[in-house]
Every structure is written in structure tokens, then in C-alpha cells.
């Protein structure tokens, strides 16, 4: 991992289209300003990873479609969908 030291107000440039600026530092909290092309999504990492996990689960769940409940009282055919 590349490690750089920056002061408040300073930036780093990634490629020719992404700039990350340190807006402020308060204790262990850093505010960053990110300029990136509109087509590049920017997420907080923990949120990105959480959405990834749910999306991939939704994909693997699609593979068990035939076992999903289709009507009231039919949940027994989708046991994994109802058990805790």
C-alpha cells in the first residue's frame, strides 16, 4: 500500500481524473473531499462491502428459486428461507 502524509487542505491525485482532498482533521475523524468522474461510483468501504454481500446473496438465492415460497402456507418448500 502506498502511504502518503498530507496536511489539511492538501490533496492527492489518482490518475488524471480523481482528486482526494483532506478537508479537515478532528481527532480520529478525517473529512475528505473527492472529485471523480460522474461514472465512477464512490462509496464508504463498509457500505460498499455490505451491498456487495447482499447483492451476491441475491444472486445465489436466485439459484434456489424453485424452493422459494409461492403462496401462503407454501413456506415449507423453502425451509432455508424461514428458519432462524
Amino acid at each position: 500500500m502506498l502511504v502518503l502524509t498530507r496536511k489539511t487542505g492538501q490533496s492527492i491525485v489518482i490518475g488524471d481524473q480523481i482528486t482526494v482532498r483532506v478537508i479537515s482533521v478532528n481527532g480520529d475523524t478525517v473529512r475528505l473531499g473527492i472529485e471523480a468522474p460522474r461514472e465512477l461510483p464512490v462509496y464508504r468501504q463498509e457500505i460498499y462491502l455490505a451491498i456487495c454481500e447482499e447483492n451476491l446473496r441475491a444472486v445465489s438465492s436466485a439459484e434456489s428459486l424453485s424452493r422459494l415460497p409461492t403462496r401462503p402456507g407454501a413456506e415449507e418448500t423453502g425451509e432455508e428461507g424461514g428458519k432462524k
Binding site: E54, R57, S60, G78
Partner: peptide, 14 residues
């Protein structure tokens, strides 16, 4: 999105 999770059948409202 809908997933079969340890909690059961779940959806992602976030």
C-alpha cells in the same frame, strides 16, 4: 434485492 440469509428470507431496503 432478496436473499436467503442466515436470518431467513430477507430484503435489502437500504
Amino acid at each position: 434485492t432478496v436473499s436467503v440469509s442466515p436470518e431467513g428470507l430477507c430484503t435489502n431496503l437500504a
